[in-house]
C-alpha cells in the first residue's frame, strides 16, 4: 500500500487555490477567444476584455474576480493509498493557507441564519470524497462564486416529464439568471440520482473540459441542442446581447428512483475556475 503524508495534500490544495484564482483554465481561454471571433460590436469588445482581465490576473497576481468563492474540493482516494494523517484537516488547512497567502477574499460566514460572522480564513471548504482503483489521490479544486451559485436551481420532476420540459427548466434558469451570473456561462446539469445527488452531478459537470463530448450519444446530442437554445436567448456577455450566453452545456446523469426524475442546473460564470492534480 502506498503511503501519502497529509502535509503534501495541504501543500497541493494551497497552491491549487492560488493558481485557480489567478489563472483562467486553458479550455476557458480558448473558448472565450473563439466566441470573441464570432461576435461583433459591444459583445466582441467585452469578450476581449475578459481575455485582457485573464492576462492581467496572471501577470500581476490580481485575482480574476473579487469573488474567490467557496473552495469546493473533490478528493478521489485510491483503494491502495494510505493517507498518513487527517485528510479533511489537511484539505482545510490547504484552503486556509491558500486564501491567506494568496490574498484571496474570505467570503465564508459561520452561521448562515443568525450571526453570519466571517470565519476570516475562508474555511470550511465543501469537500466531496469518493473512492477509485489505484494508489493515487486525485484532487479537484473549484472556486465557486456566489453570483452564479445563487441562480442555480433544482427541480424534482415526475418521471412523466418530457425532455422538452427539462430543457425548458434549464433555459428558464439561465434566463432568470440573466447578467447576474456573469455570462458567458458554463451550464452544468445533473439528471437523476436523488435530491442531493443531482446537485452534486451538476457541480461535477462544471468541471468538465470545454470541447469534451458526453460518452452517451443521447446526452451528447442534448448538450449540443441545449447550448444552441441557451445561446438563442441572446443574453450575451454582461447581459448586453450577443450570440454567446454560454460557452458549454454539460450533463452528468445517474440512476434514480422509479418515482423520481431529479434535475439540477448549476451555473458557472465566465471565470469558471477549476484545477486538478494527482498526488
Amino acid at each position: 500500500m502506498r503511503k501519502l503524508k497529509s502535509v503534501l495534500i495541504t501543500k497541493a490544495v494551497r497552491e491549487m487555490c492560488i493558481t485557480a484564482a489567478h489563472k483562467l483554465p486553458c479550455d476557458m481561454l480558448c473558448a472565450v477567444k473563439k466566441a470573441a471571433a464570432k461576435e461583433s460590436g459591444v459583445s466582441a469588445r467585452i469578450l476581449k476584455l475578459c481575455l485582457e482581465n485573464a492576462a492581467i490576473a496572471e501577470k500581476e497576481m490580481i485575482p480574476l474576480c473579487q469573488d474567490t468563492g467557496v473552495a469546493v474540493v473533490f478528493a478521489e482516494i485510491g483503494h491502495d493509498l494510505f493517507i498518513e494523517g487527517d485528510i479533511a484537516a489537511a484539505i482545510e488547512e490547504g484552503v486556509r493557507r491558500g486564501y491567506q497567502d494568496g490574498y484571496l477574499r474570505k467570503s465564508i460566514v459561520s452561521d448562515p441564519l443568525f450571526e453570519r460572522k466571517n470565519t476570516k480564513d475562508n474555511t470550511p471548504p465543501v469537500i466531496h470524497y469518493s473512492f477509485a482503483k489505484g494508489d493515487k489521490l486525485k484532487l479537484t479544486v473549484m472556486l465557486k462564486g456566489g453570483g452564479s451559485e445563487n441562480n442555480s436551481k433544482i427541480n424534482m420532476f415526475a418521471p412523466s416529464a418530457t425532455i422538452e420540459e427539462i430543457e425548458d427548466f434549464a433555459l428558464k434558469t439561465v434566463a432568470a439568471a440573466g447578467s447576474k451570473s456573469c455570462p458567458p456561462l458554463i451550464v452544468g446539469i445533473g439528471v437523476g440520482g436523488n435530491f442531493e445527488g443531482c446537485a452534486l452531478l451538476a457541480k461535477k459537470a462544471l468541471g468538465r473540459e470545454i470541447g469534451s463530448v458526453n460518452k452517451d450519444k443521447r446526452y451528447a446530442a442534448l448538450e449540443k441542442r441545449l447550448l444552441q437554445k441557451v445561446n438563442a436567448l441572446k443574453i450575451g456577455p454582461q447581459g448586453l446581447g450577443g450570440k454567446t450566453t454560454a460557452l458549454a452545456v454539460f450533463i452528468e446523469f445517474a440512476p434514480c428512483h422509479m418515482a423520481s426524475l431529479p434535475v439540477a442546473v448549476n451555473l458557472g460564470c465566465h471565470s469558471n475556475r477549476h484545477i486538478g492534480r494527482i498526488l
Binding site: Q66, Y103, L104, R105, G146, N150
Partner: peptide, 23 residues
C-alpha cells in the same frame, strides 16, 4: 456594490468587480 480581495503588498487594490445588485 463591491467587496474586494485584499491588496497584495505594494498594490493599491485587489480584485474589485461589481457584485449582484438585486441582493
Amino acid at each position: 456594490y463591491m467587496g474586494p480581495t485584499p491588496a497584495r503588498p505594494g498594490k493599491v487594490s485587489g480584485s474589485c468587480g461589481p457584485t449582484t445588485s438585486a441582493r
